[in-house]
Design a protein around this nucleic acid. Structure first.
Lengths: 249, 249
DNA sequence: TCGATTTTGATTATTTTTGAACAAATCAGC
DNA sequence: GCTGATTTGTTCAAAAATAATCAAAATCGA
């Protein structure tokens, strides 16, 4: 039982249980506690675990990518309906923006075989599309771990360098009075996309329609179309606007 | 029983059991331990196994989602030595560049719990560092699927907007005459990093040292230090330069 | 065949790894 | 705060593995 094997053992256990204990490990591996401690210290030194009194813990206790997939899976059927409809508006040769929302993410599965160029600030979108027909352009700037996307001043400036035919975006709220976001970061980048694309599609499940929340960042006439499963009563509010309404289901 | 046959034997056993033991092999093959050790060292040098005390283990048995890791596992032992040394030069509060080479990628594991900011064009690096203490900045621009990184004009301009204290870079060849690359894309982005960082560390295994290949893109005096396992005879060529040489092993 | 080169093995010295003992630091309870 | 128990760091010693050196054996090319 050499160091490499113990290291593997310790990391395996760490992955399963999230924490390890010096005494437990010593007993399980049939090795002295002082050696286990040395192992843990080296692993901690290499950044592979957090050293605690009496043992160690995982460096990153929560696996974010899975979180995102789970969140994106909420209301998945509706989102997939919306995205399938959106994909009908994307054709070979198109250059499109995709934002970092969980709805837009589900658009990936429907465009993998299209010969298009996608410009996005969303890391999950990039992972999802990186080995298929789609050619990718990544918006640069500060990475926001919680949103798994790039945001901020540099990102907005980066977007301003490109022009596309279509943008596919999500939003926290939409009504006849405009678009609403729960955070400035999201608002700014969404607005940047809108400004740089000839036509904007908003992908909104019924819960977002008619909702006016926190920060208004754009007028409704800046948007070309909304793709939604909301029923007519909710969509009534758009009757005096030029918004194209694409209903699903 | 010549070296080729023993080598085959050792690799076969490695594939089946995942590990080998010097004493066991010596007994099984009817050959002295010192010879087995020499064999293992050579195999390790070729990146075909991971040398341990008393034997060897399979290279990187855990398959990561990104197959990049496999490439990076070639010569992993040496690369890890180099990267561990590099990590000693990175401290909390630092802002650093990391490029998209397979050597630099292995630096990730040693900096996960440092409170630093990393600016990179490498997707595997981002993936590896995205849920730890490191704060990330992604270089934007066109994504190159083969290299799993962002390259090109926009990327270079993006880099030019930042200044950092240190850059950790790979290269295809390095000698007293300068830095060499096998592609223009790599050359340009490496040069962009060099120009925007106060101090540059080149991470080069012995095979790169003294090699002059394809395209020279920078002078040796633009580099601060080289971290390498090359021996003194190879490093002699730098004796008239200001290059700091950090040797490992 | 001969001499030169490479490979292998034996011996010795060095390094690495491991464990034990003990002092210092840390934690948990009051 | 204090006290006792636990954990840790340090130092040292033993064991194992390795590197270094040199000699013997095998291989190779002429």
């Amino acid at each position: 039982m050499n160091f490499q094997k113990r290291k593997q053992n310790i990391l395996d256990k760490l992955n399963v249980t999230g924490e390890v204990d010096v005494k437990e490990l010593a007993a399980e591996l049939g090795i002295s506690e002082i050696t286990i401690r040395r192992d843990l210290n080296q692993l901690a030194n290499d950044g592979l675990l957090y050293r605690t009194h009496g043992g160690g813990m995982k460096v990153d206790p929560l696996a974010k990518p899975i979180d995102f997939v789970n969140k994106s899976a909420q209301n998945a059927e509706v989102k997939d309906l919306i995205c399938r409809k959106a994909a009908e508006h994307i054709h070979d040769g198109d250059i499109i923006f995709m934002d970092c929302g969980s709805t837009v993410f589900r658009l990936c599965q429907f465009i993998k075989n299209k010969k298009i160029k996608v410009i996005t600030n969303s890391l999950p979108v990039i992972y999802e599309l990186q080995n298929c027909a789609v050619s990718l352009n990544i918006i640069g700037g500060e990475y926001n771990a919680e949103r798994q996307a790039v945001h901020g001043k540099i990102a907005n400036e980066h977007i301003a360098r490109y022009r596309t035919g279509k943008a596919f975006l999500g939003v926290d709220g939409i009504s006849q009075n405009g678009l609403f976001a729960n955070s400035e970061l999201e608002a700014e980048i969404t607005l940047a996309y809108i400004n740089q694309s000839a036509y904007t599609y908003m992908l909104c499940d019924a819960g977002k329609v008619g909702k006016e929340t926190y920060l208004k960042f754009a007028d409704i006439n800046q948007v070309g179309a909304i793709i939604t499963n909301a029923d007519d009563s909710k969509l009534d509010c758009f009757k005096d606007t030029a918004l194209a309404i694409l209903k699903v289901k």
